[in-house]
């Protein structure tokens, strides 16, 4: 009844998996277009990109209360609905990301790889951003109704996507330590950006007329433990410290394999979980 959860773990899992796909697609495209690191990095990221979002789409359908009707969302569009825009991105992203991955796997249509990279990057940014705006469009919700969520979800998508690609690059493609260090720099930059965006959001809630409820539940209420511990400390600050240690910011560089990217991934899930659940907890239905 009160505080009833309508969007549950399926939605949190979907947002998490779609974010990983979006982020790794952007990383693959950037390396394809600018050749910053060795080609194995592009391959690792390109192979990751198409698949998490497919699992996410399954979770999305499982969340529906009328799942057999799901195809209607692809036949009918409402351009005032952020969800319809999401459907456009989600229709286009998996096939384009799959083509891009196939191109790298088989060596086919090499001529079009740059065009594919541009397309998959645009769609990746679209998916990363729309996910936050989906919630922000519920403007009456004290926690969700904040457009900065669009930026937060994009930065977190990039961060989790880079980390997923990093793990594959390290353990499957055995990329050079040089490339891994480069990715750790990107990862650290994204973590710092994400901390800034979270600070902006917290200030936004603090100054909004109804935002006090959002601050209360995240910083002192039911979801404070998972937000402060799972997201801020173990999802962002600890991996940032580990990255800096790895990069030699505190004297001699030490190699700490895979812990930082794993923590970022877990923190990325917690972030979505906390926002989806806390937003509903402080905005109860009246007729449930």
């Amino acid at each position: 009844m009160h505080g009833e959860v309508l969007w549950n773990v399926y939605i949190a899992i979907y947002l998490f998996l779609a974010g990983i796909s979006a982020g790794s697609a952007v990383l693959a495209a950037v390396n394809q277009l600018f050749g910053i690191w060795e080609e194995k990095v592009t391959k690792a990221a390109a192979y990751v990109a198409p698949f998490p979002v497919m699992g996410g789409l399954l979770a999305l359908v499982l969340d529906l209360s009328r799942p057999l009707n799901f195809y209607q969302v692809m036949l009918h569009y409402n351009w005032t609905s952020v969800m319809s825009w999401g459907v456009v991105f989600l229709n286009l992203f998996p096939p384009v990301a799959l083509l891009f991955a196939v191109s790298h796997f088989t060596g086919w249509f090499e001529k079009y790889r740059k065009a594919l990279a541009v397309a998959v990057m645009a769609l990746g940014v679209g998916i990363g951003t729309y996910a936050g705006l989906l919630l922000a469009a519920i403007s009456a919700n004290p926690l969700w109704g904040n457009p900065v969520l669009g930026v937060l979800f994009l930065v977190s998508a990039l961060s989790t996507g880079v980390c997923a690609a990093m793990l594959v690059a390290q353990f499957v493609f055995k990329v050079s330590h040089q490339s891994l260090k480069g990715l750790a720099v990107v990862d650290s930059t994204l973590i710092i950006l994400e901390l800034v965006v979270i600070a902006v959001l917290l200030i936004g809630w603090a100054v909004a007329p109804t935002g006090g409820k959002a601050l209360q539940i995240l910083l002192a209420g039911e979801y404070a433990g998972i937000f402060l511990g799972g997201v801020l400390v173990f999802g962002l600050l600890v991996p940032l410290a580990l990255n800096l240690l790895e990069l030699g910011a505190f004297g001699k560089a030490r190699h700490i394999p895979a812990v930082a990217p794993l923590l970022v991934l877990v923190g990325g899930y917690f972030l979505r979980h906390v926002i989806v659940y806390a937003g509903q907890a402080i905005y109860p239905l009246l007729l449930g």
Binding site: E4, P67, N69, F70, Q72, M83, L286
Partner: peptide, 18 residues
């Protein structure tokens, strides 16, 4: 047409849907 996405339930500022 309804797929049961529950977006409308979240969107109602009067919290009048379930």
């Amino acid at each position: 047409l309804c797929i049961g996405c529950k977006y409308c339930v979240h969107a109602c500022p009067y919290r009048a849907r379930t």
